[in-house]
Design a protein around this nucleic acid. Structure first.
Lengths: 141, 141
DNA sequence: GTATATGCAAAACTTTTGCATCCTT
DNA sequence: AAGGATGCAAAAGTTTTGCATATAC
């Protein structure tokens, strides 16, 4: 299924790479740190080292299979790309991450960058706040 | 001058704190990592440890004297607060940082967050691209 | 068979912390 | 004088790298 994507990126289709993709796909939160991916591999009894997780995630990022985000937490979190660009809102209490896309914001960003003489290559917009969901509580790492 | 602000924050007015403020004020780039602040202290022959730089910057952040940003680089960068909120556009080639504020974007952000049931506490918007300035070149750390 | 990928351990980098000493108030 | 602040060194957390072995093609 996704092994085509790995091959297209010029990478060999290996077990660690398949497993990492699988875990990102199955993730309830859709946004995982390298450590979280590694822990999930341990739970599944897969023999993959943390260094490999970092290498694979970095390669996937370069191949644009995943996106790397820098939320306020201080470490990178990764998300499987599904073709669509979107921005993020992160609950500071429970860690929940929701996505959104707003054409108006996108448009304004381009106009502003252009006005300042920049050629934009990427951008990141993160909103932080409290989601008001019933099951909101601090999420264990 | 600024020593009032330090006192108001409930902190003693010490040489390290004054020096850090001074350096942030004088910074050409206005956005410095802890390491860059520390190196500037060394240049100026001030006897301040790196651990103190981190402690002071964190305290200043809590006192809202400075803002901490997480650009793509991976480490924190700090900026002196001057009262106004603004967003950032970072040149991926030379590291130049420019600031902007857009009421439309701010408004859309609030509306979106509200629509998703979030109470927003903060946000960060970073645009990345190439500034097209003549003196644009990779900036040494 | 060959080149690439992996696991492990060690290293690099950023940030925090413990503790004895020093400085501000 | 007393409590907070600092420097240094050590530790903690995240990410990268070297190298011998294993795996995909």
């Amino acid at each position: 299924m996704e092994s085509q994507d790995i091959r297209k990126a010029g990478l060999k289709v290996t077990l660690p790479r398949l497993k990492v993709l699988e875990i990102l796909e199955a993730s309830e939160y859709r946004h995982m740190s390298a450590e979280e991916v590694y822990k999930e591999l341990l739970v599944r009894n897969e023999d993959v080292g943390l260094a490999t997780v970092y290498r694979v995630l970095t390669q996937f990022e370069q191949a644009q299979l995943v996106s790397r985000h820098h939320f306020e937490e201080g470490h990178s979190v990764f998300e499987l790309n599904q073709g669509d660009h979107h921005d993020h809102i992160v609950c500071v209490d429970c860690g929940r991450v929701e996505e959104f896309f707003d054409e108006t914001i996108e448009q304004r960003q381009d106009d502003i960058a252009h006005g300042l003489g920049f050629k934009v290559s990427s951008h990141s917009l993160y909103l932080y706040g409290s989601c008001t969901k019933e099951n909101c509580e601090y999420r264990e790492k």
